[in-house]
Amino acid sequence: MKSCLICQGIINDNFEIEWILSLQPRKIKLICQDCQGGFRALSGKIKCEGCSRVLEMSGFCNDCKKWIKKYNGKLLKNTALYEYNEKMKDYFQKFKFLGDYYFLNVFNQELRKFVQKEYGSNWLYVPIPISIKSYQERMFNQVEGLFSGVNFTRALIVQSEEKKQQSKLNRNERLRRKQPFKLNSQYEEIVKDKNILLLDDIYTTGRTLYFAAEVLKNAGVKKIETITLAR
């Protein structure tokens, strides 16, 4: 009898007919059906063409319209796999804030496969970095955890140590932040004229990813897209 990583409930790990017919290797379940059902996948939903937020009608959300204005029409294309809801909040609470690194395994396989299938080897994969202070505290970068197995190009670093934990800021404070990143000088040549996929855990206001993209654009990157686990 196994218990669910998230709620400690019992995982029903019976053999299912779908699995037997699929001829696939058996996936080990880490979370129970109820918790699984609590995560809302975004594929197939009507969503913002910019950031993947769920919308009632296709088009751009209000936030992305503002980004279009601010960046003269140069909108980032963000793919998010899941909606940021209560369940996802609970997940990040345990993974990122309690610091249970093993939680990366709940989504790692899915994220890795998605990136490899949709983007492949013509892209460089740049994870959003965390500050040295956060790293010392947490002892892992949750983004690199989530996407582990992907070949990272650590082209960005946090430039000021003041970078307060974003989750502690409110929406306006987030939007008013100053550029927190700079280019890792070792990668100056490497990123030029490349396609870059930025990797992050949660897309909230988009502020972080737009800052990261700005640094990379100034470094002469050809094309930038972004992917996050949750929106």
Partner: peptide, 8 residues
């Protein structure tokens, strides 16, 4: 295990 080879 943590990625810095420490344990929790």
């Amino acid at each position: 295990i943590l990625p810095n080879q420490e344990y929790f």
